[in-house]
């Protein structure tokens, strides 16, 4: 489970002053559900997810992941999450197998467990053909599969996806979306950030609309539509984040 309580991040900038990357963000994600963080570029999605993933330290508020506090127990938090983002790349000169094994070992797994886990993931994701090929030689789809295997090698309880389909072709993006669904099916706690309305609508059990670093509205897709009186999630989104922008 993920629980964020008034999570705040202020970036100090000598030229621009204090910038609130996240402003009192609160939400709760139960196991076996997908929580969507929907927002435009710069809305605060990545900052929020990086705080939950312990890559950034919150300025205020708190969060727990699988029962561990992100500030006091960051190593334990990271041991329980799989973090996949458009910005999390692969080591070009390692093979797919070496990449997965490296992260297995960083997660404290022994060689035998790593080998066994790679066998399972390779089978599940259909990686047999390219497991021993260097990442720099892989196609985009193969790279995505390798990244997924990397996030799953230690079988985490919580999955964090930060715009994972950004820049991907339709087929690769579909396979990612399918994988996210499978994570829910396996009872994992999933948080998924995106600015693509259709993805959010198809995938998420609950959605938090984030804008200017703060959660502006939260609920199921149906609840959000009902709240704004719109039949389309995109229209609901616009109405929530910029009501003055509507014709």
């Amino acid at each position: 489970m993920i629980e964020a309580r008034l999570l705040t991040k202020i970036f100090r900038d000598t030229k621009r002053g204090d910038i609130r990357g996240a402003d009192q963000v609160s939400f709760r994600v139960e196991p076996g559900t997908i929580y969507g963080l929907l927002g435009a570029n710069g809305a605060g999605k990545t900052t929020t997810l990086r705080m939950i993933g312990t890559l950034l330290r919150p300025t205020g508020g708190s969060a727990t992941v699988a029962g561990f506090d992100v500030v006091r127990e960051p190593d334990r938090v990271r041991a329980n999450i799989g973090f996949l983002a458009a910005s999390t790349a692969l080591y070009a000169r390692l093979t797919a197998r070496e990449m997965i094994a490296y992260f297995g070992r960083l997660n404290g797994m022994d060689d035998r467990s790593v080998r066994a886990r790679i066998g399972v993931l390779s089978e599940e994701l259909g990686m047999g053909d390219f497991l021993d090929r260097r990442c720099e030689k892989l196609s985009t789809g193969m790279k995505q599969k390798t990244s997924i295997a990397r996030t799953l090698v230690h079988d985490p309880q919580v999955m964090i996806f930060d715009e994972p389909t950004l820049g991907l072709d339709v087929m690769t993006a579909r396979s990612i979306v399918q994988f996210v669904r499978e994570c829910r099916g396996r009872g994992k706690t999933v948080i998924y950030s995106t600015h693509v309305m259709s993805e959010a609508e198809k995938l998420c059990d609950r959605i938090g609309i984030i804008h200017g670093g703060a959660i502006r509205a939260e609920g199921t897709v149906t609840e959000l539509k009902a709240r704004t009186g719109e039949s389309d999630l995109e229209e609901s989104f616009v109405r929530i984040v910029a009501p003055e922008a509507r014709p």
Partner: peptide, 14 residues
């Protein structure tokens, strides 16, 4: 630059 630093920092390694 290549984006692997963030990947690495997501691991539980100190």
């Amino acid at each position: 630059e290549r984006g692997t630093m963030e990947t690495l920092l997501c691991s539980p390694a100190a």
